[in-house]
Design a binder for these strands. Structure first.
Lengths: 197, 197
DNA sequence: GCCATCATGTTAGAAGTTCTAACATGATCT
DNA sequence: AGATCATGTTAGAACTTCTAACATGATGGC
């Protein structure tokens, strides 16, 4: 058994991890600093050494989530030929898979109103995530990632997987009693958005 | 000038309206009962005559928003031949239009975790909203609204407009510097999802 | 090896929140 | 006119975020 130490070791990371678990268990809006502190084994004032306020801790949880989601998407794309329909579908499925595995964190990632002004790192990470998709689309057509047609297709694909993620984590699909073959649906949408006519 | 009266008249409606405005101004999570009470001109305990707790007030705001969104979609569809691509696009645009006009309320409508169990009326109203779209899709194909192909197409179209709504209200489209012709994009997605091959 | 320094923790408390309990008011109906 | 009861108020308990002042112990110079 580990002795309770005055100094935590890495409290910042410990708090982010504790907060991540709590966000997942009870939803972002139910997270309290008290709970996070208790879970990390410190007093309620300790977090303020590392995070300006509650929102700053949530920002950190969101950022960490964005990075994990991006890695999942990267891995999904890498397991298929670059720029192929299969690769692009896999990226979308990885996006949705992250959302459904980590509803709380995913919801948090997209509930930070006007957060970009407050925390440019979140914007940067968001761009990197979108870039995973853009690179495959650009490769497919042999153009640059900021080509207007790549951006337009990227937006439509992102829109679709983003929307489906939300409908799934809000249980709308089941509430409306809609049968769903997720991989087939994502593949279908990918094919429809990528065809030229 | 109106004399301050002890009895409000219709405090329930007054609180919903005050809460709606506050949700829109500061976001759902920033709404406090204190603020809503103050805006409605009553003490902080008065709302509890009509709403069990803060969440119940938010539920009421969400419900009212869902009804207004449904009416907007209904009107959009009605202004075109039933079942036409134009009608279906118009429904989608009305959905997105509501979301961007009332970000706070729209976000609230889709942030009520596990609320269906708590408030079946929200589920019922959600079904009615989806039904606006389903009726046009069913009409188009001359089948019932619960036909699997209608449900599948309905889900894809909903997914798209839902996703685009969220990306717009979260300022992701502008953050990623994606040029967007909204009506054209919705029309394009509608056409792609409705074609048979 | 000892001790000063300072990062990192704690405790105490102010201000604000939700929600309850007990009381006050005035609209309504006989 | 007066009783009744829905609808409001005030007071306060339990919680929250966040700050200020203090405590601890890890670290580096001597």
């Amino acid at each position: 058994m580990t002795k309770p130490r005055y100094h935590h070791g890495d409290l910042r990371a410990g708090l982010i991890e504790a907060a991540r678990r709590l966000v997942e268990a009870k939803g972002p809006e139910r997270l309290t600093m008290s709970d996070a502190s208790r879970a990390a084994g410190v007093s309620t004032a300790a977090p303020y050494r590392y995070f300006a306020d509650r929102d700053a801790l949530l920002d950190a949880v969101a950022l960490e989530g964005m990075e994990r989601q991006r890695h999942a998407m990267q891995a999904g794309g890498d397991s298929h030929p670059p720029g192929s329909d299969a690769a692009i579908s896999a990226i979308g499925l990885a996006y949705i898979g992250f959302a459904t595995r980590e509803r709380g964190v995913f919801r948090l990632m997209f509930s930070l109103t006007r957060t970009h002004a407050r925390h440019p790192q979140l914007l940067q990470t968001g761009r990197a995530t979108f870039g995973v998709l853009l690179r495959h689309l650009a490769q497919r057509d042999g153009v640059a990632t900021d080509d207007p047609s790549v951006l337009a297709r990227g937006l439509k694909l992102w829109t679709f997987v983003h929307g489906l993620s939300f409908l799934l984590i809000d249980d709308k699909v089941s509430a409306m009693e809609i049968p769903l073959d997720l991989p087939a649906t994502v593949a279908d949408a990918t094919r429809r958005f990528l065809r030229d006519d």
